[in-house]
């Protein structure tokens, strides 16, 4: 479970997050949506302990977040960066050596599912395959919280679809909470349990997606148009 209590994050003078309160529960796939610069990435980094709140507190499973929450949080950056000297296989082995919950068998299963060549170097992979590799690395951990920052951004529909299928296949929704930031709402619309909308550093809505459809007969896109105005 993730809780943000009165969290404010300032960069110099600009507020990236302004007094945010958010509670996310386990067993759900949650989408964090909003425009560029609205505070999506900052939120994820705060939960991963890679940024520190200016005010307020962030907790994961009751534990106050520091950088070492990496123990129970798998964080996937939006950046397309790997150590250039490792092949795909060595990258996976390195991750397995650093995270004790990393499941090597699962990693190779996802790798096969994503049809990646273990011997190639990340820099020689296509952008799409590097995107797939990130999914391999973050989903192979048996970890309570998975944070995916823009996993679809800049990837073609085929790759996006394989990532969606990877999420459905390899997330254990009995035990895991997955938080995804994304622009490509249509891509994830059918796999989200909840959606959180963020604008200018404030949470402007948090809904169960099926409830939206049942009660208001609207999808996420319509809902966003409604609340963004």
């Amino acid at each position: 479970m993730i809780t943000l209590t009165n969290v404010t994050k300032k960069y110099s003078s600009k507020k990236a997050l302004d007094n945010v309160n958010l509670e996310l529960t386990v067993g759900k796939l949650i989408g964090l949506v909003g425009e560029n610069g609205s505070g999506k990435s900052t939120t994820l980094k705060l939960i991963a302990g890679l940024k520190h709140p200016t005010k307020g507190e962030v907790r994961v499973n009751g534990e106050l977040v520091t950088r070492r929450i990496a123990d129970s949080v798998s964080y996937l950056s939006e950046l397309d960066e790997y150590y250039s000297f490792f092949t795909v296989e060595k990258t996976i082995e390195f991750y397995a050596s650093q995270f004790k919950d990393f499941d090597l068998d699962k990693a190779y299963e996802i790798l096969k599912f994503m049809k990646l060549d273990p011997k190639s170097k990340p820099k020689h992979l296509s952008k799409g395959n590097r995107g797939r590799l990130k999914i391999v690395l973050s989903l192979a951990r048996n970890v309570p919280v998975i944070l995916l920052d823009e996993p679809f951004s800049g990837l073609d529909p085929m790759v996006r679809n394989s990532i969606v299928k990877g999420l459905i296949s390899f997330i254990d929704l009995e035990k895991q909470l997955v938080l995804i930031t994304t622009h490509e709402i249509r891509e994830v619309e059918s796999i989200l349990d909840e959606v959180v909308a963020i604008k200018d550093g404030s949470i402007i809505g948090h809904h169960n997606v099926e409830d939206l459809r049942e009660e208001k007969q609207i999808g996420i896109v319509d809902w966003m148009e409604e609340i963004y105005g």
Binding site: R67, S77, E81, F99
Partner: peptide
Amino acid sequence: RKRLHLWLHNPMSI
């Protein structure tokens, strides 16, 4: 520094 998250996203102490 170019990919600080790779280095710092690790349960090990600094």
